[in-house]
Design a protein around this nucleic acid. Structure first.
Lengths: 388, 388
DNA sequence: CCGAATTAATCCACGTTATGGACTTAATAT
DNA sequence: ATATTAAGTCCATAACGTGGATTAATTCGG
């Protein structure tokens, strides 16, 4: 149900509108903010005052535009006070990063650990250490952490990780095992948001994160689409061929069986070897036939699955991340060719296929960015905002 | 950008919250409304007064609950004043219906016309006549039409129908050809909304409308998902078999080639005949082998496409409408079997497959319902609201 | 049958918030 | 120097919701 609004909610929302506009328009004068938001100069002035007191924005010198009339004093986001901590648990690494209000990365730690070998308790105690180091460093920089999000590779429902098959987790309550107040979300979702806020993605796109499994996060109008129960985006199990090879999901011919990391390495003749993706890349650069054919085949399958995804979800753009990022050069063409052949009659424009610039950091950044974006949209949500 | 809120917007929103709650909770006392919405009794009383003056709600006698204390006077939606007109253009018929604020259908006209034979101008002039009859009748009942929506079988962008292949339309500006202020939307989208408001569908579902083509509308949290450019839901062209029969969309093995009306009739051995779906039904009831096999095959293909849809969009339930409604008995089992086999390992629950109760009326009802729902959510949006 | 208790609805003084015009300040143009 | 222009602040006002007091209409208990 839509909530009733009282005066305080109106104020909170307008404050968020002003802060969001400060972020969007870089250094701006109060007068310009009033013009853009439709609020009066008086209101904007009061709000900017509060935001300065809260350390969220700062005056950044005069706007000398050469026009006549009194020059405005520009205000801009201040990264000096408010920050957020993003954490990520993945199959073979843990990472943490602190991001300030301007989305600048202040601290970043990553640690390679094989988390399949250890229990959730052990893994989370490792993560706790990493988080503590990051928090200490942030505090040394004078930052206050407004919130913490943990990214995990599997579907999440209110902090409960029901099953993360690649980690071997079942029914793990992440917040209960950390001595920090954290929120938990799915890695693929957060990677999509990371791409939105830190990458070069537009307002509408589908972010495909190819790892062992293949997940996808759809962003429409700057908001993540989660589906009815938060399980949307399982691109890896979209049907490519109904009678194809059996998949661990119980189906047949899922995309994962053609373009998942394991299937790809096997098709390239690197199934048993330990070289993994780096070796595959070497052999592709060397022009070996089998790896090239494997990528061609994976690209075509990806194109088929993406065709279905485009028909159903209509994303504006498609961003390939995870292992598809280094393989982009070899996968793009067959995938795009397949999509064009199947989509161009029905649509003016076939969604562009681009590559993520963020690589493996996307989810960690998205985890921290989520907190920052909430604080910007609703500054009062940060409990340490100036007592009123 | 999120809009700044002024006092009038706060009032508009709260008024909508109250009106929506009146709708949701049937006859309620003002005191109960205050409790539910979180607003004070004072505020609610003033708003209910305004809504009564506008003819949107009416007192419906005392609430005699047997408890002690003064009994409340219940208020409920009043269908006597505000209404909306829904229009639909389809391949072989036109229809119009007037729906009042309580979502009761006041007037309904349908006319069988083969619109493939006539130009957009002719078709729309027919529609205009039908609409006029409906408006006249509504006015005779004392109703005021708050808005009009036209449903068309094809993607729509701000009133412009770029291409409706089944009608033979290209770049038709529907509002320019009618002497009414109308909004235009896609038939599959409106059918999904019709199912939401007039059918028995829950808050989250995917509505599949099988006609010549196969469209789908996804509703999540009571809101329609449209994708980046409003083209989401093209279930008919989801890939079922990458090397299957060629489709008019340029692809191969699209769902439409297995479960579209034409493909289905052809597979049942009724390709050239004029009997259509009614004859197919007869033969199915008679237990003829070829039609039964055709449905089995179509159901399996539908199951494959829906599997992809569930993985990507995660709908809570799936509602089959259009020609799939009469065929439900024969299609449900193979479709459900296919989905269960492919989905049950990954999810606790496989979305239920249900049938629409609305049949062909869904889009017309959705078109009218859209206006009503907007008026309820924001009563001021109806320009004839009591001048303040 | 009557007063006490209880709940509904309204009334009124007040607090919060945004508004809009007047005022002050700081620059450019003449 | 003086006029003009625009930024930012000040102040009285209007819109709206709040919360306590008041009035109204019941049931309960004796």
């Amino acid at each position: 149900m839509t909530q009733a609004l009282r005066h305080d909610a109106m104020r909170a929302r307008n404050l968020g509108v002003v802060l969001a506009e400060v972020r969007r328009s870089g250094p701006v004068s109060r007068a310009a903010l009033a013009e853009i938001t439709g609020l009066t100069k008086t209101t904007v002035s009061k709000m900017v005052g509060d935001l300065i007191a809260a350390g969220m924005v700062a005056e950044s010198g005069a706007v000398r535009d050469g026009e006549r009339g009194r020059p405005g004093t520009a205000v801009a986001l201040s990264g000096g006070r408010v920050a957020a901590l993003g954490l990520e648990i993945n199959v073979d690494y843990l990472s943490a990063c602190v991001v300030d209000l301007t989305l600048a990365v202040r601290t970043r730690y990553a640690q390679a650990v094989d988390n399949r070998m250890s229990s959730p308790v052990e893994t989370l105690s490792h993560l706790q250490e990493l988080a503590q180091k990051a928090v200490d460093e942030a505090q040394a920089q004078g930052l206050v952490i407004a919130g913490v999000t943990v990214a995990v590779p599997g579907p999440v429902d209110k902090g409960l990780v029901h099953a993360a098959p690649n980690l071997g987790w079942h029914d793990v309550r992440v917040p209960d095992l950390l001595s920090l107040t954290v929120e938990v979300d799915n890695e693929a979702n957060l990677a999509a948001l990371g791409e939105l806020w830190f990458g070069s993605a537009p307002e509408d796109f589908l972010h495909v994160s190819g790892e062992i499994g293949i997940g996808a996060g759809l962003v429409v109008g700057g908001a993540l689409f989660r589906g009815a129960s938060g399980l949307a985006g399982e691109l890896g199990h979209v049907v490519v061929a109904p009678d194809g090879p059996a998949c661990r999901c119980g189906g047949r011919g899922c995309l994962e069986q053609y373009a998942g990391q394991d299937a790809l390495l096997r098709a390239a003749g690197l199934g048993g070897t330990a070289g993994g993706v780096p070796e595959l890349l070497e052999r592709l650069r060397a022009g070996e036939r089998r790896p090239l054919e494997a990528c061609e085949r994976a690209g075509r399958a990806l194109g088929v699955a993406l065709t279905s995804a485009v028909h159903l979800m209509d994303p504006g753009t498609i961003v390939l991340g995870g292992v598809f990022a280094p393989l982009f050069e070899w996968i793009r063409e067959p995938a795009h060719r397949t999509m064009t052949a199947r989509l161009s009659t029905m649509r003016h424009t076939v969604p562009a296929l681009t590559v993520s610039r963020l690589g493996g950091d996307a989810a960690t950044l998205g985890a921290a960015g989520r907190i920052i974006h909430r604080v910007i949209a609703d500054p009062y949500s940060w409990r340490r905002f100036a007592s009123r």
